[in-house]
Amino acid sequence: MSEARESEPRSLSYLAAISEGVREVLLEQDNAFLAGEDVGQAGSVFGIYAGLFDEFGADRVIDTPISEKGIIGLGVGASATGCRPIVDIMFMDFMGECMDEITNQMAKMRFMFGGSVALPVTVTTMSGGGRNLAAQHSQSLEAWLAHLPGIKVVMPTNAYDVKGLIIAASRDNNPVFVVMNKMIVAMQAEVPEGAYEVEIGKASVVRQGTDFTIVTLGRMVYEALDAADQFKEQGLDIEVIDARSIQPFDTETVINSIKKTHRAMVVHEAVQFGGFGGEIVAQIQDLAFDYLDAPVARIGAPFSPVPFSPSLEDAYIPNAARIVEKVKEMLA
């Protein structure tokens, strides 16, 4: 779903696509601004917002104090009163500091107030492990958010999607969380110039297959693609679906795939117990039970905080090897 000022696609990193997405929003909407810890002069961690401060100035690209509750509150109050803010929580782990503002204010205001207010606020944040940043800088907490009626949650996994989803999130009149991943910031993809949207609530079939369905959240899509390639020579044709959005969740795309493949697995980086994968499995068994040849498998992280040591973190984060092993078990 593209529109306007579109030109020849160029190869762009995930990182550069983030700031390009925010840039399009700031160009398009006078009442849009970006606020967060170190988003301004420093361009945030990994430099995801590099250049925006210089282009738009301190009035629109705003360095905030280290005050997460204040930052989310800023987004809620400003969006309720005519602005279209993008507020950034540097690492998703820091949402612990502002969960009241998210849970009891942002997610509920429109409903509690009888539909009399809209909150067009976008929250950007970085999730996931893999950089040995230990228990408080590596978590995948998207299930917290997906459980809250009133907000939307997307998890872009490539440069094209992250730009298009940031723009779609900003144009949406609801609070939308854009949960990005810190392991794929350097990854390149074709990205058009100008503004375009990626539809919120629409999954992406990133690999067509006929024999097996793997549904993934976040960067696990790359582990699933790797695993799928490993089965190619054995003649097992695996379909890989990048959920892209978990609230709303594109049940239809998943069910249509299973009607074709009859076997499915869900993979995410978050702790498996209580993770969003459980919801996906429940939806599948509600709507496609008769099409299944086997129970739906789940892969997530073990039930522990994210460990620091490389030997433990490597064992902790789900990967292609674990997916391959599980697929083999299911086919045995």
Partner: peptide
């Protein structure tokens, strides 16, 4: 260094 002989057994690292 993330080793088992560390104060936190390698689970915490510098930040913990």
């Amino acid at each position: 260094f993330g080793r088992s002989t560390g104060y936190c057994g390698g689970k915490g690292g510098s930040m913990h």
